[in-house]
Design a protein around this nucleic acid. Structure first.
Length: 427
RNA sequence: GCCUCCGUCGCAUAAUGGUAUUGCACCGGUCUUGAGAACCGGGCCUUUACGGCUUCCAGGUUCGAUUCCUGGCGGGGGCGCCA
């Protein structure tokens, strides 16, 4: 959500930004909202004046009563005002709703450095980390490998819970916990504070953090309760700060959270594919930063690097792929995906996403900083440290040995009870 | 889940239908070598007006609601259930 003042003062800039994002159908909204805003201000002024006269008459009544004077004439005069206020207020509130609806869909001003492009096919590779190698031996699909080692039971999960669920068992379950714990500790070492948030949130919080469309496609609702299962800990983490003014002394807030994540994944066909790639339930270590407006790009650069480092320590080659203007969600000013190398598919796949939302999310949720004698909107950022079981796919492929066993990188061994290898030798 | 009491700035507190009081803390400014003291100020909105809004939230009654009524949310105490 951008500042309506920016729209008032510089509608041209807002329109240029919309064009950059190839959302030309939204261009008319700018003039529409300007008109509505002008009307709103007019009504607001009228209303203020009406209230002012009501307050004055009320005062007169109060004083007249004290002096035991007759107030019937004043009362008669006063009675007409509330009706007028109500009428004006009704109109104003209607306008307010319309304005807010439009402001919600006007995209955040993207950073000047964002590459211009229509959709994800025009995202730009920034840098490769590690060598994306394809070994001479065949890399087994993770679900086949899991089956051979009795590391997963998709068939039973389908019976108990449905497609898109899984049992992870034995050493793979250990590894799943290990990589999450490793990711958590890595972030703590970088100075982040560890948080376990609520895994369910109320509707009003959900509405704050996503659109109705997203809500329908993602969120599971608890029957008979005003509660939804979170799709990511970002929901409850950022929800914690709705309508809060944070003391400048506590800024930047560097938080890393763990949570299970639940997603309906409505309309995604990838769910048919066997394995861990697209599932209804996963676990994620996340990072959230709330900082001074001038520092958000400094944090943005640091944040995606942390993810790259975590994957490097797990011996997984990655690359960064910058979201082009058309692929950028409306709240985001800049965003980069971290993708892991798949030696089996000979291509990269998404394992994390780092975004700077500048002040758009903070304005929408009313998250402010108090300091230097001023109160102003914060900048907010979020990034995946590691999501499992998806990260396990990359792990099992890149650490797979010629004999079919899985080598545990040194950094992970303490989390795996010292084990250096897991898995049967199958070849 | 039930019964019961309660919700006013970060904390404490006043007003009990007449337009939110006071103290402490915090922050900014003035003064100062610096700190402290002292003094001035402190949220939001708009067309900056001796303007409007703000007593957990949403409604209602009223010329006027912190005060009365209804619902929600949050907290304390008691009972029940529970890893």
């Amino acid at each position: 959500m951008i500042d309506i003042k920016l729209l008032r003062e510089n509608p041209k800039l807002v329109k240029e930004n919309i064009k950059k994002k190839f959302q030309n159908d939204k261009l008319i909204l700018v003039d529409k909202v300007l008109k509505l805003d002008e009307e709103w201000r007019k009504l607001k002024n009228e209303e203020d004046k009406l209230r002012s006269s009501r307050n004055n008459i009320s005062k007169e009544i109060s004083e007249a009563k004290k002096q035991k004077k007759d107030v019937s004439k004043l009362l008669k005069q006063a009675k007409t005002i509330p009706e007028e206020i109500e009428k004006t207020e009704e109109k104003r509130k209607k306008l307010e709703t319309q304005i807010k609806e439009i402001m919600m869909v006007i995209p955040n001003i993207i950073d000047a450095s964002v590459p211009i492009g229509k959709d994800d096919s025009q995202n730009v590779e920034l840098k490769k980390f590690g060598k994306p190698e394809v070994p001479a031996y065949e890399i087994m699909h993770h679900s086949k490998l899991a089956e051979k080692n009795e590391w997963a039971d998709f068939d039973s999960a389908r019976e108990t819970s449905g497609n898109g669920f899984y049992y992870i068992t034995g050493d793979l379950a250990l590894l799943h916990s290990a990589i999450l714990a490793f990711a958590r500790d890595y972030m703590v070492q970088q100075g982040f504070s560890y948080v376990i948030p609520p895994f369910m949130i109320r509707r009003k919080v959900v509405e704050g953090v996503m659109s109705f469309k997203e809500m329908d496609a993602m969120m599971y609702k608890i029957d008979g309760e005003d509660l939804y299962l979170i799709g990511t800990s970002e929901h409850s983490m950022i929800g914690r700060f709705i309508d809060k003014t944070i003391s400048g002394k506590k800024i930047p807030l560097l938080l890393t959270s763990y949570s299970p994540c639940f997603r309906k994944e409505v309309g995604s066909h990838g769910l048919e594919e066997k394995g861990f790639y697209r599932v209804h339930q996963f676990e994620k270590q996340e990072m959230i930063v709330i900082c001074e407006p001038e520092d958000s790009y400094k944090w943005y650069e640091k944040m995606w690097k942390y993810t790259v480092e975590v994957f490097e320590k797990m011996n997984i080659p990655v690359r960064t792929l910058e979201c082009c203007s058309g692929d950028l969600a409306d709240l985001k000013a800049k965003s980069v995906d971290v993708e892991a190398w798949s030696p089996r598919q000979k291509k990269y796949f998404e394992v994390g996403s780092c975004s700077n939302l500048t002040d758009a999310q903070a304005r929408r949720l009313n998250i402010r900083i108090e300091g230097k004698g001023k109160i102003y909107f914060a900048h907010t950022l979020n990034n995946t440290v590691l999501a499992s079981p998806r990260a396990l796919i990359a792990f099992l492929e890149n650490n797979q040995q010629k004999d079919g066993s899985i080598k545990i990188p040194t950094a992970l061994q303490p989390y795996m009870a010292g084990k250096k290898y897991i898995g049967k030798i199958t070849k």
